[in-house]
Design a protein around this nucleic acid. Sequence first.
RNA 1: CGCGGGGUAGAGCAGUGGUAGCUCGUCGGGCUCAUAACCCGGAGGUCGUAAGUUCAAAUCUUGCCCCCGCUACCA
Length: 535
Amino acid sequence: MEKKKTFYISTPIYYASANLHIGHSYCEIITDSIARYKRERGYDVFFLTGADEHGEKIAKNAELAGKSPQTFVDEIANNFKSTWGKLKISNDDFIRTTDPRHVALVKKVFTKLYNQGDIYKGKYQGWYCTPDESFWTESQLGPNHTCPECGRPVQLKDEEAYFLNVKKYIPQLLKFYDEHPGFVPGGKLNEMINTFIKPGLEDLCITRTTFDWGIPIDQDPKHVVYVWIDALLNYLSALGFLSDDDSKFKKYWSKDTEIVQFAGREINRFHTIYWPILLFALNLRIPDTIFIHGLLLTRSGVKLSKSLGNAPSPLPLIDRYSLDALRYYMVREVPIGDDGSFTPKQFIERINNDLVNNYGNLLNRSLSMIKKYYDGVVPVYVEPKGELTRKIYQDINLYLKEYELQMDAYNITKGADAAMKLINLGNKYIEDQAPWTLAKSENTKAELAETIYALCEVLRIGSIILRPFLVEKAPEALKQLNVPPELTKYDSIREIGKLGGVITNKGEQLFPRLDREVETKFLAELIDGRPGEKE
RNA sequence: CGCGGGGUAGAGCAGUGGUAGCUCGUCGGGCUCAUAACCCGGAGGUCGUAAGUUCAAAUCUUGCCCCCGCUACCA
């Protein structure tokens, strides 16, 4: 038997300074959809997400909450996990930067790079606010060199720190970019090159002594590893790199594995510049793709964030509209790679049009006809005679190919669109065939049968390809159709003609219609914390 | 200042040289299997702006205006 192809996909690890909002859910949902698609296609998938739990901000927030940092992040990590459970995120592991396995790896990597001369001790210079005990960069400062947080004056101050020698690897990095044009899709690389590399990239400061909630380095324990070396290594520590059991690392970081890592555009720089350099220094392969996704904005185009009070939790949305409604909206409405928005109007229209009117309705009307004309039993397939029936099978194939093409390029927005267009073929086909007319005469019985049969295939195939997005409702649709388990597998998607005799099991409507006025009000209050204007 | 992205029907978007397209909304028609759903048709755009290249430009070149993002160790 041929060895399964392997696939490794990761989200960034979210900073555990506060609880999650819908923006984090966005990244989880798109990566989960891809992970699920790859599993459907027979890949051996490793899907990773996690939490970034070190740093000054977390230490401060913990203190404010009257908790130890560890207790604080334990609670938040649990919150992450339980939220992802509710979103049915199918991650294979959850990495925390406070995990012993992660701490051990960071220390090992630091030591290795230190010993090979890629890390050296130097001085970090920045604007320091003594009362707040924090460093700021020139651009972060308030007017007249004041602390952006407390407004008091800051002083230029030196601090002993360790640096990663990134300059050394720039030529190798540029060569790599050149040879791998698909590394960062969507033209998001030039910005990095022009802004950071061309003007001359400085070495990266990777330790701090001004706080202690971090991983202390063995060489100099008053230093803790600062942000990015710690955070980026999660992708390797979760695989057991440099640990007693590195079987996962060998499997999923091998040169044969397809590796794609998702990151928001705000952390583009770290993933497209420093991360490859770190891997160069460790003499490891580079991921195939760093996919920079957009952010979820509100209607006014303002970044979702807790401080603006416009970032709802995903949970009330799930409770009210079903998990799949939320998942579908994010996949289909936000063009992957671009920023998107979450607005009541768009949400309601997208759900009503695609899920209620198109998909749910097709299932409902098809099952009704099977019940009415065939007592609930799918008619036997015969070679189609009608021109339109032959055409619909061709069109199904066309959209199926388009779907696979898009999904293989991680373009789930267009993949979901192709799936929905495939479903829509069914609605148009019904209109063209007018089964209610065919049912009136004995002469057209055969045509009625082939019509109803074709609809079952549209629904079977459509539901299979919607399954990565609609993790509850697509299986539900297949259940109502009562498709035999082996025919619900992706491998059998092109096996047309085997559904004859299946006893269908018509159930509840897949998606209830959303009332525009009522739901606009509900959503506007959820997003803005106040009633929105009517649209 | 610099860099990246963008300005196409009421809204949201496709469209990199050859009679302007999609979804939603809107208007009109049809159907009745279906969740007032579904199907068909119409109206609606001088493709930010000015100039240039070309037989031909939304699509290539240049200038200008406007919007969004990034600008360094900050998730």
